Computed example of a mutant assay.
Amino acid sequence: MANEEITKRGVLVADASAHMAALVAVMLRSLGRKDIREVCDASKAMFELNHRSFDLLIIDDALVGLDGVAFTRKLRANSDCRNRLIPIIMMSAAPDAKRIADARDAGITEFLRKPFAANHLLTRLDNITAHPRSFIESAEFVGPDRRRKTVSVGKKARRSVDGLAEAS
Rank of each mutant, 00 (worst) to 15 (best):
L112E: 00
I36T: 05
L85S: 07
A103S: 08
M46R: 15
H51V: 07
A42C: 01
L31A: 03
A14L: 06
R37P: 07
I128D: 01
R113D: 10
A117I: 13
A77L: 10
A42S: 14
E38A: 14
D96N: 14
M91N: 07
L85N: 10
L57W: 04
F135E: 02
D67I: 03
R133H: 00
F47M: 13
I59R: 10
D126E: 07
T109N: 04
S43E: 15
V69E: 12
K44S: 13
I36D: 04
H131C: 00
A22V: 07
L31T: 05
S134E: 08
D80C: 07
G68K: 08
A45Y: 05
R29I: 08
A45Q: 06
R82C: 14
N83F: 04
C40F: 09
K98A: 15
E48F: 12
R133T: 01
D41N: 12
M20L: 11
V39E: 03
L63R: 05
L57M: 03
M27K: 10
V11Y: 04
D80H: 11
A21S: 09
I89V: 11
R73Y: 06
N78A: 13
I88T: 10
T109L: 03
R124F: 00
E110F: 01
V13K: 04
R73L: 11
A97V: 13
A77E: 12
F135K: 02
A130T: 00
L63V: 05
D15S: 01
P95N: 05
H19E: 15
T72V: 06
S43Y: 15
V64A: 10
L49N: 03
S79H: 14
V11N: 01
L125R: 00
T129I: 10
I100M: 12
A106Y: 05
D55V: 13
D67T: 05
A21I: 01
R104T: 11
P87C: 03
R104Q: 11
T129G: 10
G10W: 06
K74Q: 15
L23S: 12
K44E: 15
D55Y: 12
A25H: 07
L63K: 07
T109C: 02
E38D: 11
A14C: 04
K114P: 08
E38K: 15
L12G: 06
A22H: 09
L122T: 07
A97S: 14
A106V: 09
S138N: 06
R76F: 07
I108E: 00
C81W: 05
D35H: 06
R133N: 01
K114M: 06
E137Q: 11
V69Q: 09
L23R: 11
D102V: 06
N119S: 14
